[in-house]
Design a protein around this nucleic acid. Structure first.
Lengths: 184, 184
DNA sequence: GTCTATATACAGATAGAC
DNA sequence: GTCTATCTGTATATAGAC
């Protein structure tokens, strides 16, 4: 991967997580990196190619974080906290999850990119379901792992969304407190 | 309010809840209603004027629904279900909450519209806090009303967002089941 | 209130030189 | 890989006739 390609991906990731994919233009992206927009087209022929790259790259990094949590000899409580920490870091950077942001723009994406978003959400939920199933003894609730997993993940996405408008961070805190109350 | 103005508001509301505010153009909006884009500018001089109208109109309708719930002699369980029903109707129309959608685009809104979004979120949370406070005896949880309110509302917004990508509706169902488990 | 016509800016995308 | 130059389409917005 060339240097400028890497810079483009980073600048685009940053921009989309803040302003959305629709608001991203090849011109301003090129300006950020210090090249011309036609050179951006060399790396990403169409805008949808850039979208695909961003989703794949973001997903890869994200799931690497989850695998890293798997390898720790932590209890459920600490692992869930590590999961939530990922979203707190996104919030601290005043961003949304890339896939959460692009979910709001899903109607304008092509089928390939919709499928990539779908996989990101499903795979994340499956990771959480596995985590809860592996640690049922440490749960305070009768709610099944699927409900807990889907609820937790969607809750964090919603909290990120609302906390960028109401800037007190209280929605993320609320989700954390609520879900921690389910854990021994 | 003239007939075309009303049509414009409805078409715009529909479009934004599906595709976002950024993706809305005065041209296509005009086409939807059957007039020219310059005539749209007569009703809404700048795009931000349209944004303001949409947020105000959506908020007004939404809070009327909440006041209608207040006036019912229902228990907590039924009132919360009525609240969640609002979001299920939005999901059934394959839309997002207007303010949830525009929250994803908050960086591109002017101060007035950001403040209107902020009020929508805060006022909704306050309505829920009041509801939980008025019915503490019907709650199964020690979690305070503020946490429950902020968590429930953000959770539903997140569920709407993700369920448009993964089209099984399971995230909204999960939130419903989870929060209903807190109610007697 | 709506129209035609237009100004100005910017979008995504391509051709071809270097 | 990056550039200049350009095509084509569309965006927001305005002026002025009807």
């Amino acid at each position: 991967m060339t240097d400028n390609r890497k810079k483009l991906e980073e600048a685009a990731l940053n921009s989309v997580q803040r302003n959305g994919f629709n608001a991203l233009s090849f011109r301003t992206l090129a300006d950020d990196v210090g090249i011309k927009s036609s050179s951006v087209h060399y790396h990403f022929p169409e805008k949808s190619d850039l979208a695909r790259t961003l989703i794949e790259r973001y997903s890869e990094t994200f799931f690497q974080s989850l695998y890293a949590i798997n390898e720790r000899k932590w209890g459920l409580r600490r692992k869930v906290r590590a999961f939530i920490d990922i979203f707190e870091n996104v919030a601290a950077a005043k961003k949304l999850c890339l896939c959460g942001m692009m979910a709001s723009e899903v109607e304008q994406l092509d089928d390939v990119n919709r499928e990539l978003l779908n996989s990101y959400f499903i795979n994340t939920e499956n990771w959480l379901i596995q985590l809860f199933n592996d640690n049922r003894d440490d749960l305070n609730t009768e709610l099944n792992s699927r409900i807990l997993a889907k609820s937790l993940f969607a809750s964090l996405q919603g909290a990120l969304l609302l906390d960028r408008v109401v800037q007190d961070g209280n929605r993320l805190k609320a989700q954390k407190e609520l879900f921690m109350s389910f854990l021994k």
